[in-house]
Structure formats: structure tokens, C-alpha cells
């Protein structure tokens, strides 16, 4: 059901409890992600329910793990000559996979994962989404959190220019980025976030947008965000670039 003229913050308040445990349907999840940054009360509300969600993980009845499990795990991690020979390559591949998951959209349910056919990758995506959400919740609970809008640079459609909002705190190395009206990209492309200090750029992660040009992303910086002045977003190859290869979609100061 499309959003109506109702106050989105009121609908958000209704959805936050279910969203916090991943029980919202895809359209509801998209609605929460699209409007969260503009509803400060909902952000606080979400932080409260996230605490409950965390507690529920510990609320399962206690059971004793069978001792044979540790034996099985030890057997599985014991290095064999073949495994040792493969390890450097395998870890390199894992590194690429980890880099790809950095770009994952925040959200608990299967909205994105359902689009991926490979079961193992889907599972990795789900896990990364959850850990990213935990990161986002920790961030939005920070006392010195600030919010800035990043202006579009030469938008192709002036009436609906790409828009981005960054929620960050100076002493954190992560930030929450929401975007909308971003142009769709070819499958071999992704958007790359750049953190800028005195003309030097470092990558803050990769992401893709949904069919309506929206995304919510965790930005990861090598150091606390107070070390940077600006942030920009450019379209790049899906694996990312060492430096921007295209003009920015949006760019602006990190701090108000």
C-alpha cells in the first residue's frame, strides 16, 4: 500500500516495534528506511526497541551444548596440508566478499536477500544486514549525532534531484547514509562513498539502490569521522575504485 498523506512519523511509530525484530514486510521495511532519518522520535523509539530485541536473543531457555560439538569444530579447523596451501587464496576471496558486503543495505528482512539466488551468499547478506543494523542503532543512540543533507551535483532530472542524508557523530568511524532518487545503475556498477580531507579521498563503502533509487547504508571510515571534511558519492565499477572515476552524484560537507 503506498504511503498516504498521513504524517510518515506516525506510521513509523507503529512500525518500529516490528521493524526492530525484522518482522516488517518488504514495503513496510522500505517505508521505515525511507523516513527514519527525518523522524527523530522514531530514531529514539527504534533505539529503545533495539534494546529489547537484543535482550530477546538472550531469553531462550538455557540448554547445554553437547561436548561432541567442540570436538567436531576442532576437527574442522585443524589445518591440513591441502587447506594450508589454499588458505591465502581463500582468505583473499573472503576479503573480496567482505568488501562487497560492506555495501549492504540496512534492514532485517529478506527484501534484498530474496533477490539473490545463491543460498550461501544470501545467508552472508542476511548476517551482514543484521550486524549493520546493530551498528546503525549504536550510532543513532550516540549523544552527539548530527544530520546533514548532501546537495546534488548537476542532477539529470532537476525536479527530482538525487538526495542524500548523512547521520554521523564526530568520534565514530561509522555513519548512517540514506539516499533517494539516485539513478539506477548497470549490474556491473555500484555507488561508492568517498570521505574527503584536504582533497584526499578514501572509500567509505559501496552500495546499490532499489528500483526507486533508495538505499540506507552504513558508511565505514578508516578513522573517526572528525578527520574528514566532506563526503561524496560517485558511480563506480561494482568492486569499487581506488579513486573516483566519475563526477559525484552528491557532495557536501560532513558537518553542519
Amino acid at each position: 500500500m503506498p504511503p498516504t498523506a498521513e504524517n510518515p512519523c506516525e506510521r513509523l511509530a507503529d512500525l518500529i516495534p516490528a521493524y526492530s525484530i525484522g518482522a516488517t514486510d518488504p514495503d513496510e521495511t522500505a517505508f521505515v528506511q525511507a523516513h527514519l532519518a527525518e523522524c527523530p522520535e522514531a530514531v529514539a523509539h527504534l533505539a529503545e526497541f533495539a534494546h529489547l530485541a537484543e535482550g530477546l536473543h538472550y531469553a531462550a531457555p538455557s540448554a547445554q551444548a553437547p561436548t561432541r560439538l567442540l570436538t567436531a569444530i576442532r576437527r574442522q579447523i585443524a589445518p591440513s596440508p591441502a587447506v594450508r596451501a589454499l588458505r591465502p587464496v581463500r582468505r583473499w576471496v573472503q576479503g573480496i566478499a567482505a568488501a562487497a558486503t560492506i555495501a549492504l543495505i540496512v534492514g532485517i528482512n529478506l527484501f534484498w536477500a530474496a533477490r539473490l539466488e545463491d543460498a550461501e551468499r544470501r545467508q552472508a547478506v542476511l548476517r551482514a544486514q543484521l550486524t549493520d543494523q546493530q551498528t546503525a542503532l549504536a550510532l543513532i543512540g550516540a549523544a552527539d549525532v548530527q544530520r546533514v543533507s548532501l546537495p546534488a551535483i548537476n542532477p539529470a532530472i532537476p525536479d527530482a534531484p538525487p538526495a542524500a542524508t548523512l547521520v554521523s557523530a564526530p568520534n565514530q568511524a561509522v555513519a548512517l547514509l540514506t539516499v533517494q532518487y539516485f539513478p539506477a545503475l548497470a549490474p556491473d556498477k555500484a555507488y561508492q562513498i568517498w570521505l574527503i580531507k584536504a582533497g584526499r579521498r578514501v572509500s567509505g563503502g559501496l552500495f546499490r539502490v532499489d528500483s526507486e533509487g533508495r538505499a540506507m547504508v552504513i558508511v565505514r571510515a578508516p578513522m573517526a569521522l572528525s578527520a574528514y571534511d566532506e563526503v561524496g558519492i560517485t558511480p563506480e565499477p561494482a568492486d569499487g575504485s581506488a579513486a573516483p572515476t566519475a563526477p559525484p552524484i552528491v557532495r557536501g560537507p560532513i558537518w553542519p
Binding site: H57, Q123, T131, Q134
Partner: peptide, 22 residues
């Protein structure tokens, strides 16, 4: 993939249980 968790993601046990649940 030990690098999947870092301190900024909150307590390790909560991250571990989130992975467990899913």
C-alpha cells in the same frame, strides 16, 4: 571471518546471537 565483528558493533555476544538467530 573474525573481521565481521568489531567493537563498534556492540557486544560480541549480541552479534554472535544475531548471527545464530538468522
Amino acid at each position: 571471518r573474525p573481521e565481521r565483528w568489531d567493537v563498534q558493533k556492540g557486544r560480541f555476544s549480541s552479534w554472535l546471537l544475531t548471527v545464530t538467530r538468522y
